[in-house]
Simulated assay, not measured.
Amino acid sequence: MKITVEIAGQSYQANLSSPASIAITLLPDGQQPSHFGAPACTSQTLAEEGFIGDTKQGGSCNVNRLTIIPHCNGTHTESIAHITDQPFPVHQALKHSHFPCVVITIEPVPASETEDSYLPHFDPTHAVITYQQIHNCLASFSDEQLRGVVIRTLPNAVDKQFQCYNTDNYPVYLSNDAMTYLQQRNVNHLLVDFPSVDKMYDEGYLSNHHIFWQIAQQTHQLTASADKYKTITEMVFISNDINDGFYLCNLQIPEIDTDAVPSRPVLYALTPQ
């Protein structure tokens, strides 16, 4: 099935029969990515008096209890409530589950090689994404095309889907200048293939999250000037057979009242008509 959409006065066609999921398949009790030393996602058979949720053990059906930390156990989408005292669940922030987006590929550079800044500070050996890299990739696109931005980092080996991120395997993050540029371009939905847009150990600042949602640094109040209808999706995986370019994204989420939920972003290539 094909649909036609109009974006910034230009018609595009998307083939809904050719979806490309960029969510990491999460295997409870199996191989899975992890961040910040959090425990893995697990699955346990529900067993109550007179009931066993396992057909192999004689049960009538399979019923499992999942234990998951969305922020650390795979592909997840966050709302502004990740950094505010006031609740604002992801399903409220995601006003439109379909939006145009641009997929870009960037090879992060050592922080020592950029003049960009980061609050509280860069560690020189960390790999970071800079303003100039983001600008070079997105300058030719209109703001209307940049409702979403999907960032793939190099190298892009398949084992990225099972990485354990820690001090020995420190994840990439964005400079504050790069995030400021994305905010100025009115990007509503940012999707990245690393576990956080911020430095893993950043003294609790989460400065890029604050820039993206327009919450004053080192505060946690949801003010009228905040950009609350925006989302950040982390730990996606964009396979190498997905080309850089222009797509329609369908961001699929469960309707749970919380600041982060497991998610499944699906891309459809957009062809000009």
Rank of each mutant, 00 (worst) to 15 (best):
H96I: 10
A139C: 07
L222C: 08
H96R: 13
V149T: 04
D168W: 11
R152I: 02
S97A: 13
S117V: 01
S140M: 00
I106Y: 03
H189C: 09
L191Q: 15
F162W: 12
Q132M: 07
F212C: 05
Y170N: 09
P124F: 00
H121L: 11
Q163E: 15
F162A: 07
A81V: 01
Q132F: 12
I106K: 04
V197C: 11
N176S: 04
I134Y: 05
F99I: 08
D123N: 12
S140Y: 00
D202K: 10
A111C: 01
D123E: 15
V102W: 07
Q132G: 09
A178D: 12
V172W: 08
T84G: 07
Y118R: 09
Y170R: 15
H96N: 14
R147V: 01
A93I: 02
H135F: 15
E203F: 14
R152S: 00
V192K: 08
A224G: 02
Q184Y: 03
L190S: 08
Q217E: 14
P195C: 09
S112C: 06
Y205M: 07
F99N: 13
Y181V: 08
T219V: 03
F99S: 06
Y118L: 10
Q163V: 09
A224H: 12
V128A: 06
I83S: 12
H209D: 12
L190Q: 05
M179H: 05
S117A: 12
S142A: 14
Q214T: 10
V128K: 00
V158K: 13
I104R: 02
L146G: 02
T153P: 01
F122G: 02
Q214V: 05
I151V: 13
F122I: 00
H91F: 15
Q86F: 00
L154V: 08
H126I: 03
L191V: 14
V197I: 15
T114A: 07
A157N: 11
A157I: 11
A81P: 09
S142P: 13
D198Q: 02
F212I: 11
H135G: 01
V90H: 07
D143I: 14
S112V: 06
A216F: 06
H135L: 13
L94K: 10
H98V: 09
L174K: 09
C137D: 11
L222T: 09
L154I: 03
H82M: 10
F162Q: 06
F212N: 13
Q86K: 08
I151M: 03
D168Y: 08
E203D: 15
D202P: 09
L191H: 13
F141E: 01
D143G: 04
Q221M: 07
L154N: 06
R152M: 00
A224R: 13
Y205E: 04
F162K: 03
Y181M: 04
D143T: 14
A216Y: 02
